[in-house]
Amino acid sequence: MRAALLRIGALLISLVLASVVVFVVLRLLPGDAAGATLGVGTTTDQLDQLRSELGTDQPVVTQYVQWLGQVVRGDLGTSFVSRLPVADLITQKLPITVPLSLSAFVLAVLVSVPLGVIAAVHRRGPVGVAVSAVSQLGVAVPVFWVGVLLVLVLALQARWLPAGGFPRTGWDDPAAAVRSLVLPVVTVAIAMSAVMVRYVRSATLDVLDQDYLRTARSLGYGRWHALARHGLRNAAVPVVSILGIELATSLLGAVVIENVFALPGLGTLLLDSVTSRDLPVVQALVLGLTAVVLIMNALVDLGQRAIDPRLRTAEVAA
């Protein structure tokens, strides 16, 4: 319990640190936010007016404290470009990005855990060698290329699924929405699986070498039964640590992939905002995504503690 509180404290500190870094880096913008927004040919009066409107004439520390106060109240600021509240912009996009990355994550876990275990158990067999080789190759393949190839073959040539876009009606037409997410989900999942299979395989190989598995066999457990009883839980400890990174991967994979499939999600919003230097939106999105990653890492740590009692005891002893 104490350890969990400590971990949550550490999480809060890194969240604050990350927000400081993001805030400061974006304030280094040459010219400044006001200049970047209004562009060339604006008068000094207009600039000054916008600056006081944005609060950028205040010292950075004051700006940060003000901004943090707003964030805590759920106010993420207003987009320079669309003049809409950033919070609203983000909320609109969530119904695309969240299902996309979560399903990709689940699909990747469902594919790579069995594949990795099989590849480890049959490490010298044709299946094991093939899985290792394919995942070695897969790690080198850029995610967007996978998307492009799937579009080329399954959407443009075979015409099984839409090549991109999202129905204007959104989730009101569930079938169409799902159809437009199939290829993006598969793309991100393939990309993630290549990494995860390697992890699961290595973790399982480590477990297969352990004496306790031999003990279980000596007591009459079959190979798979012994692996199920002792191996999976033990292999889960390292694999869980990669799950945090992988969920982040699926989220950021979604960011890239939305641009391949022209899906109007968070990734498209982020890219548009970076291109148009829409500071409040970039700031909110970068911080939001970083926060998800940091929170996932904290959850992973706590999850590992739940699986491995040794980690809990180590905390007490320390």
Binding site: Q210, Y212, T215, A216, L219, R233, V237, I307
Partner: peptide, 16 residues
Amino acid sequence: VAMVFQEPLTALDPLM
């Protein structure tokens, strides 16, 4: 036929 191994720490599952 049952067996007892040399190293009792590694012969037992640490998570069970």
